[in-house]
Design a protein around this nucleic acid. Sequence first.
RNA 1: GGUGAGGUGGCUGAGUGGUCGAAAGCAGCGCUUUGCUAAAGCGCCGUACCCCAAAAGGGUACCGAGGGUUCGAAUCCCUCCCUCACCGCCA
Length: 422
Amino acid sequence: MLDIRLIREQSDFVKSRLATRGGDEAAKIDEVLRVDVERRKAETALQQCNADRKKLSKEIGGKRAKGEATDEIEARVREIGNEITRLSEQSTAFDEQQKALLLGTPNLPHESVPVGKEASDNPVVRMWGEKPNLSGVLDHVALGTRLKLFDLERAAKLSGSGFICFTGAGARLERALIQFMLDLHTREHGYLEMSPPFLVRRECMIGTTQLPKFEEDMYGLEDQQMFLAPTAEVPVTNFHREEILAAAELPKKFAAYTPCFRREAGSAGRETRGIIRVHQFDKVELVKITAPEESYAEHESLTADAERVLQLLGLHYRAIELCTGDLGFGSAKTYDLEVWSPGQNAYLEVSSCSNFEDFQARRMNLRFKDAEGKNRFCHTLNGSGLALPRLFAALIETYQRADGSIAIPEKLQPYFGATDIR
RNA sequence: GGUGAGGUGGCUGAGUGGUCGAAAGCAGCGCUUUGCUAAAGCGCCGUACCCCAAAAGGGUACCGAGGGUUCGAAUCCCUCCCUCACCGCCA
């Protein structure tokens, strides 16, 4: 959520930043400003009436104590009471209108973000490793089917299309990767491990910006008051919602493994082949809560922490920076990590590392007390560290051997308990 | 799921219809005095929003949340949420 004061005082700046996202986001600002004027007008009038009523009511108390008549004054207060009812309805209505507009307005892209219209405008900021030199490449579906690492047909029998059932060595590999990543982030990168609930309340989904705008992509339960978390970002970032943290506690760093649930009513085709895009997938997520001054440095290090997983597994990848037009709703700046998939002959997104600045914190009312004792909004960040199915696919495709077996990267062997799958 | 108790400022904890944004204590900040650590005294010490060009200043709201009764609600009524205890059920 954007700061209404910023919108009020620097509306041209806000509009021009929003315009870089494309669409008509900037047009909403005029509507917000209009409602803001009305809201404050009603609020000021309401407060004046409240002040009058308060004063007169106290007079009644005084007169009653002295045994004096109060009929006339009571009648006046009753009249003011009617006015108060009217004004407070008005002010509440404007307030809700304003809030709805603000909840639907995306974050301002950071000034460092490259301006662009769509994904093809995203610059590559880093490349690591090289494409493996393979002959007779099989893709993960062929490999997985042959070695019985997962069973998509039977998963569909259980839950419909878009679900995976890992089996045997596949299930073990999935588990090994989770354990490997959690150990790396908690032991070497300083994150606190968290194992949160997967079911979260509506307020949390609003806090981290999945709602109200993307409700149709989410799985809701119990009259849409509870949701299956689409990412651990939701429970973990909201962990400290409505709190005022001490400056000394910052930055807070959390790593959490959870399954993630998404409707993803997207298109079929190459992008959705096999286990690339599914309704339920595992992910290790990294979350940081920082002071505003540190968030951009923490964003770089969070991205580096996620990249380290790919490096240790010896997987070729590139880091791209999302341009203004491709930036997520709540993000001020995002790097995507894309691992090379020999089977798809394409880069697959396995991590999205974003700095939300105070956009989520404002929605969650997450603050910290600074050195001067002032309460200020924190900055929140998150990134996958990493998402599993695509990592799984890239890994088995990259490490496939001519004899049909799959090598296990050295760093993963202690977790997997074997050197290859055959 | 059932029954009972309870949710007040950073903490403890008074307050059951009128001058209560809320006593008192603790913690914190400032000053004074005596002075080794320490003690005593005095003052300050919540958040959000609104008015004001801004500062100064003024105002409103907030005693778990939302409704209601009343001229007036922390206080009375209703609904919900949460915490604690016991019971039931259960991995």
